[in-house]
């Protein structure tokens, strides 16, 4: 039995397989509509997340399965002080697979060590969010047609942005990828990510505070939100939240083939006026997330269409 806690637990080959399955689901949805008939997914969300939870639930319904669970800690036994270990042991009695989000980093790993069914990490604090990375990867593959030889701009909160760290880890495994890291000084990519992933892997990268200057170079621009919940200090959040706002004016210098990604939700870091630009890929990215979650559920439950 296998779980998915960290994107790097998947080999490049396994990611290719998931992408292949997701593409097949997109082309032949009817083939998969009963693939998980009689199976149940438990969504244990100890922290609210509309999009990730709904995406998991939609994925399971489209595979013909059922869903049970809770969407905040207050409506679970965690509010009575129950441990993660006990919760998942009990849920293992009722469900075939678990998707979990938890504010504490490492909680899904603890769950996977204790549960009798596969556990998918749906985000643990500022740590990992592998299914977001799967959504990002399918989007890059579908929009650009390849992973190799791409210049990927990452903009905004690169310090606390877990999706950024996971995407860097996943994309660093492909040939010829270059990262352009665009952030205010205070939200720069942590030294250990640069050292352990980029420098160790010999991956080319550039750090800058100036989005407009590097815009023409980019094949992909991954925007992020400065997340209020990652700050202990409100003042610091307010000071940094408007560091970068993507507007149609700033996009004038960009390539015609640029793809703009964002893990969503956005606050104001992408102007609504950008949404109609064909280069805006973020809503397609949210849809891709559902297909990759479907592919992942099939893989972890070891069922096929």
């Amino acid at each position: 039995m296998r779980s998915l806690i960290d994107i790097l637990e998947l080999t490049v080959g396994e990611i290719d397989e998931l992408i292949e399955t997701a593409c097949d689901i997109i082309e032949h949805p009817a083939k998969y509509k009963d693939a998980c008939r009689g199976k149940k997914l438990a969504t244990l969300f100890f922290e609210p997340s509309t999009r990730t939870r709904l995406s998991f639930e939609a994925a399971m319904y489209e595979l013909g399965g059922n869903v049970l669970g809770f969407s905040e800690a207050q409506s679970s036994s965690a509010s009575k002080g129950e441990s993660v270990a006990d919760t998942v042991k009990v849920v293992s009695c009722y469900a075939d697979i678990i998707a979990m989000r938890h504010p504490k980093e490492g909680a899904p790993l603890v769950a996977s060590m204790k549960a009798d069914v596969p556990v998918i990490n749906g985000g643990d604090g500022g740590h990992n969010h592998p299914t977001q990375t799967l959504a990002d990867l399918l989007t890059i593959r579908r929009e650009k047609g390849r992973f190799e030889n791409l210049v990927i701009g990452l903009c905004g909160d690169l310090k606390f942005g877990r999706t950024v760290h996971s995407l860097i880890a996943a994309m660093s495994r492909y040939e010829g990828v270059k990262f352009v890291l665009i952030s205010p000084e205070e939200l720069k990519l942590p030294g250990y990510v640069k050292r352990d992933i980029l420098k160790k892997g010999g991956v080319e990268y550039l750090e800058t505070t100036d989005l407009e200057r590097v815009m023409p170079e980019l094949d992909v621009l991954y925007m992020t939100r400065v997340q209020k919940e990652r700050f202990f200090n409100e003042e610091e959040y307010v000071r940094l939240k408007d560091s970068y706002v993507l507007t149609p004016e700033k996009l004038r210098a960009a390539q015609e083939t640029l793809s703009i990604l964002h893990p969503l939700p956005r606050v104001n870091e992408i102007s609504v006026a950008v949404d109609d630009d064909p280069r805006a890929s973020y809503f397609r990215q949210a849809l891709n997330g559902k297909y990759m979650r479907m592919a992942l559920i099939l893989k972890l439950l070891e069922v096929s269409a």
Binding site: S83, V84, K104, E105, A107, V110, D124, H127
Partner: peptide
């Protein structure tokens, strides 16, 4: 923020 700060006997 680590789960070890809250999970019993981990």
């Amino acid at each position: 923020r680590c789960i070890t700060t809250t999970e019993q006997e981990l």
